[in-house]
Computed example of a mutant assay.
Amino acid sequence: MQDAGLISLRRMKEGQKARIAHVQASGELGRRIRDMGLIPGAEVEVVGRAPLRDPVALRLPGFTLSLRNNEADYIVVEPLKQAG
């Protein structure tokens, strides 16, 4: 998973932004994740987490999405550099 700075979406911190590199899930779960707009190239930002850290709230262009950690494990992202 440490391929060229790539991490699982689950490991992102609140306020961190990233670009989706790929989705490792296949079949029904993979289709459902992609149907939610989590596709390679999409930018995401972690905007919050529940008190027990599951689920995680993500901001994508135009909407906010809540995702369970077991689903976030299948999404591999490239963290983006923060300005300033």
Score class of each variant (00 low, 15 high):
residue 35 D to E: 15
residue 64 T to G: 10
residue 70 N to W: 13
residue 83 A to K: 12
residue 9 L to Q: 06
residue 22 H to I: 08
residue 70 N to Q: 14
residue 23 V to G: 01
residue 57 A to C: 12
residue 47 V to G: 00
residue 72 A to Q: 02
residue 25 A to N: 05
residue 13 K to C: 10
residue 31 R to M: 12
residue 46 V to E: 02
residue 34 R to W: 00
residue 48 G to R: 14
residue 65 L to R: 11
residue 63 F to Q: 10
residue 74 Y to F: 08
residue 44 V to C: 06
residue 44 V to L: 09
residue 3 D to F: 06
residue 14 E to A: 11
residue 41 G to D: 00
residue 17 K to Y: 14
residue 64 T to W: 07
residue 69 N to D: 10
residue 62 G to P: 12
residue 55 P to E: 01
residue 39 I to H: 04
residue 47 V to D: 01
residue 21 A to P: 11
residue 26 S to R: 14
residue 15 G to E: 08
residue 30 G to L: 09
residue 53 R to V: 02
residue 47 V to H: 00
residue 64 T to P: 06
residue 2 Q to I: 13
residue 67 L to K: 01
residue 28 E to Q: 13
residue 13 K to N: 13
residue 70 N to D: 14
residue 70 N to M: 11
residue 70 N to I: 12
residue 83 A to E: 13
residue 46 V to F: 05
residue 32 R to G: 05
residue 50 A to K: 06
residue 70 N to H: 14
residue 37 G to P: 14
residue 16 Q to N: 06
residue 18 A to M: 10
residue 61 P to N: 04
residue 4 A to Y: 06
residue 64 T to F: 07
residue 2 Q to C: 10
residue 66 S to F: 04
residue 35 D to F: 09
residue 72 A to K: 07
residue 71 E to H: 03
residue 47 V to N: 01
residue 5 G to V: 06
residue 28 E to N: 12
residue 7 I to W: 07
residue 56 V to D: 02
residue 30 G to D: 06
residue 8 S to K: 07
residue 76 V to S: 01
residue 10 R to A: 05
residue 57 A to Q: 15
residue 76 V to W: 05
residue 31 R to K: 11
residue 29 L to M: 11
residue 7 I to M: 12
residue 68 R to L: 03
residue 59 R to D: 05
residue 17 K to A: 15
residue 62 G to R: 14
residue 50 A to Q: 06
residue 76 V to C: 03
residue 81 K to Q: 14
residue 14 E to W: 05
residue 56 V to G: 02
residue 8 S to E: 05
residue 80 L to A: 02
residue 82 Q to L: 12
residue 64 T to R: 12
residue 74 Y to R: 12
residue 6 L to H: 03
residue 77 V to I: 09
